[in-house]
Amino acid sequence: MNIVFVLFDNVTQLDFAGPVQFLSRLPGAKTHVVSKDGTSVSTDCRFSIVPSSSFADCPQADIICVPGGFGVREAIADAEIVDFVRTQAKAAQWITSVCTGSFILGAAGLLQGKRATTHWAYTQLLPLYGATHEAARVVRDGNLVTAGGVTSGIDFALELMALAQGEDVARTIQLALEYDPAPPFAGGTPATAPAPVVTGLRDRLYDRAAEEMGDAIRQSLIV
């Protein structure tokens, strides 16, 4: 089973690191971390990741996963990235994304008429690519599986492992990696976080970021 992760500059590293840590444990899995030319990509944590290969050297994916990050705005305008995802998706068993990586799937024409999710601050933009937002941490529509923001990538990986090889395999890997989340307080979604925290974060970061993402999506549709 070839599992392909598509990376690009300014990717959110946990969108990638969480799922790859889990999915790489699948029996028989071969993990391929790829970038356009095979060179390192920057992350939003100010370190770089060195991929295992370039697009040209990448085998056909059984599972293709596209993480998100602020670099998505540039990625959806990059024809090589979008074309690679579109081509790989044609024969992939599972087409997946984490966080705003869903918009790269959208740019590749893979969200049209589908139910999907993304980071909570950007869900209103999914209809621009013909998708219907479903309020869930992980959303499956046929062979399309999309995850919400950042940490939901681990939940996504477990669900995907259960679909691919059964719940017993997924539970075993969950135990091996001691995934038993117990945050010290509620507040990981706008529904559970205090209203001033939500408002402050939107004002400080996400209102502008969502506006910029929307502009990038509309521009990609024009092109």
Rank of each mutant, 00 (worst) to 15 (best):
Thr151Glu: 08
Thr151Arg: 01
Thr151Asp: 11
Thr151Val: 15
Thr151His: 04
Ser152Glu: 08
Ser152Phe: 11
Ser152Met: 10
Ser152Gly: 06
Ser152Asn: 09
Ser152Ile: 11
Gly153Gln: 00
Gly153Trp: 05
Gly153Ala: 02
Ile154Leu: 07
Ile154Asp: 03
Ile154Tyr: 01
Ile154Ser: 00
Ile154Cys: 01
Ile154Trp: 01
Asp155Ala: 06
Asp155Cys: 06
Asp155Met: 08
Asp155Ser: 06
Asp155Val: 10
Asp155Lys: 02
Asp155Arg: 07
Asp155His: 10
Phe156Leu: 05
Phe156Ala: 02
Phe156Lys: 02
Phe156Arg: 04
Ala157Arg: 07
Ala157Gln: 04
Ala157Ile: 04
Leu158Thr: 06
Leu158Phe: 08
Leu158Cys: 00
Glu159Lys: 08
Glu159Asp: 04
Leu160Ile: 10
Leu160His: 03
Leu160Tyr: 12
Leu160Thr: 11
Leu160Asp: 04
Leu160Val: 11
Leu160Pro: 06
Leu160Ser: 01
Leu160Glu: 05
Met161Glu: 03
Met161Leu: 00
Met161Asp: 03
Met161Arg: 00
Met161Lys: 00
Met161Phe: 01
Ala162Thr: 12
Ala162Lys: 05
Ala162Asn: 04
Ala162Met: 04
Leu163Asp: 03
Leu163Pro: 00
Leu163Phe: 03
Leu163Tyr: 02
Leu163Val: 02
Leu163Ile: 02
Ala164Lys: 00
Ala164Val: 01
Ala164Leu: 01
Ala164Ser: 01
Gln165Asp: 02
Gly166Thr: 13
Gly166Pro: 03
Gly166His: 03
Gly166Gln: 02
Glu167Gln: 15
Glu167Thr: 15
Asp168Ile: 13
Asp168Tyr: 00
Val169Pro: 07
Val169Met: 06
Val169Leu: 03
Ala170Leu: 09
Ala170Glu: 08
Ala170Met: 09
Ala170Ser: 14
Ala170Phe: 05
Ala170Ile: 15
Arg171Glu: 14
Arg171Thr: 15
Arg171Tyr: 12
Arg171His: 11
Arg171Cys: 09
Arg171Asn: 15
Arg171Val: 13
Thr172Pro: 01
Thr172Asp: 07
Thr172His: 07
Thr172Lys: 10
Ile173Ala: 12
Ile173Pro: 09
Ile173Ser: 12
Ile173Phe: 08
Ile173Gly: 08
Ile173Val: 15
Gln174Thr: 15
Gln174Ser: 09
Gln174Leu: 04
Gln174Pro: 10
Gln174Phe: 09
Gln174Ile: 07
Leu175Ala: 14
Leu175Ile: 14
Ala176Arg: 13
Ala176Lys: 15
Ala176Glu: 15
Leu177Gln: 10
Leu177Asp: 10
Leu177Ile: 13
Leu177Ala: 10
Leu177Val: 14
Leu177Asn: 12
Leu177Trp: 06
Glu178His: 13
Glu178Asp: 15
Glu178Asn: 09
Glu178Cys: 12
Glu178Tyr: 12
Tyr179Leu: 09
Tyr179Gln: 09
Tyr179Trp: 12
Tyr179Lys: 03
Asp180Trp: 11
Asp180Asn: 15
Asp180Gly: 10
Asp180Thr: 14
Asp180Cys: 13
Asp180Met: 12
Pro181Val: 14
Pro181Cys: 08
Pro181Ile: 14
Pro181Leu: 10
Pro181His: 06
Pro181Asn: 11
Pro181Lys: 07
Pro181Glu: 07
Ala182Thr: 07
Ala182Ile: 02
Ala182Asp: 09
Ala182Pro: 02
Ala182Ser: 03
Pro183Ser: 12
Pro183Glu: 15
Pro183Tyr: 14
Pro183Met: 13
Pro183Gly: 13
Pro183His: 14
Pro183Phe: 10
Pro184Ala: 09
Pro184Asn: 05
Pro184Asp: 10
